[in-house]
């Protein structure tokens, strides 16, 4: 068998297998052969704010993805973090929100926008939108031009200004670290979704259940029910990016 032939056969079998696996993962969401998927997250901020000072989601995410803890704010890397109301929802604050939410920060992360500006500007398709809505990163292709960081209106992207490894207290060897010179951000845990697991932050919030993750294309999913029944906000809705992270405020 030639090399090309061999790769062809194995490639096809892998694709078939993956398709079969995908179908089994989403079997619950409908009878169609390949039901549409639109991953989204709903954050119930009331539940989140109840547990003051909790950083379980951040810690879990940063641990499984080997996100370094860099003291110098200029070189900081963060996938999930917290912002005060005014910063998370600029132009939606009133003169009183600061008082209302004093010392109560809101979790923020990549919004996995439906119309992501970062994807539009990337010159190498190193960041792109998957059909199921995930805004992905290909760390093998990123040239480190940081155009995506200029384009993201939410500050969701970080750049590796220095080698991250010396700043990792412990390395989870299952997930690659990054190296200096590439951009990174939350991927909605693409690697865990592929295994049929929920994102690490969602799993870490099991107790509070403030983070709900699911398929918006499925009308019966938890996220669909929540966005239909509760009033939600999205960050900077006027920019037309259509974030897929929804916040229940009241």
């Amino acid at each position: 068998m030639t090399r090309k032939g061999f790769l062809g056969v194995t490639g096809i079998s892998a694709a078939v297998l993956a398709a079969r696996k995908l179908r089994s993962v989403f079997a619950a969401s409908g009878p169609a052969a390949s039901p549409p998927v639109r991953w989204a997250m709903v954050i119930d901020t009331q539940k989140c704010l109840k547990k003051a000072g909790c950083i379980d989601c951040i810690a879990a995410c940063h641990k499984v993805h080997n996100v370094p803890e860099i003291k110098d704010r200029a070189h900081e890397i963060k996938w999930v973090w917290k912002e005060p109301f005014k910063q998370a929802f600029p132009a939606q604050e009133t003169a009183y929100t600061e008082e209302a939410y004093k010392g109560k920060p809101f979790p923020v992360l990549c919004n996995h926008c439906d119309n992501p500006p970062c994807v539009r500007v990337c010159p190498t398709k190193a960041t792109w939108k998957r059909e199921d809505g995930l805004v992905m990163m290909d760390w093998h292709r990123c040239i480190g031009c940081r155009y995506c960081m200029a384009a993201c209106p939410y500050g969701s992207r970080s750049f590796n200004w220095v080698d991250p490894r010396p700043h990792l207290r412990r390395i989870d060897i299952e997930f690659p670290t990054r190296t200096k010179g590439v951009v990174e951000k939350c991927t909605f845990c693409a690697e865990r979704l592929a295994r049929g697991q929920a994102p690490a932050c969602v799993q870490a919030c099991k107790e509070q259940k403030a983070l709900v993750f699911g398929n918006l294309a499925d009308p019966d999913s938890d996220v669909s029910r929540l966005v239909r029944s509760r009033f939600t906000l999205r960050r900077k809705p006027g920019l037309g990016t259509n974030p897929e992270v929804y916040y229940i405020i009241g």
Partner: peptide, 26 residues
């Protein structure tokens, strides 16, 4: 100046290898 600003200069050719017409940088 663009070259020295790149985080991964070794991958500079990716701009030509994966041409992306929707990017203004391209």
């Amino acid at each position: 100046f663009v070259f020295v600003d790149m985080g991964q200069p070794a991958r500079a050719l990716n701009i030509m290898l994966y041409p992306t017409p929707n990017s203004i940088m391209f």
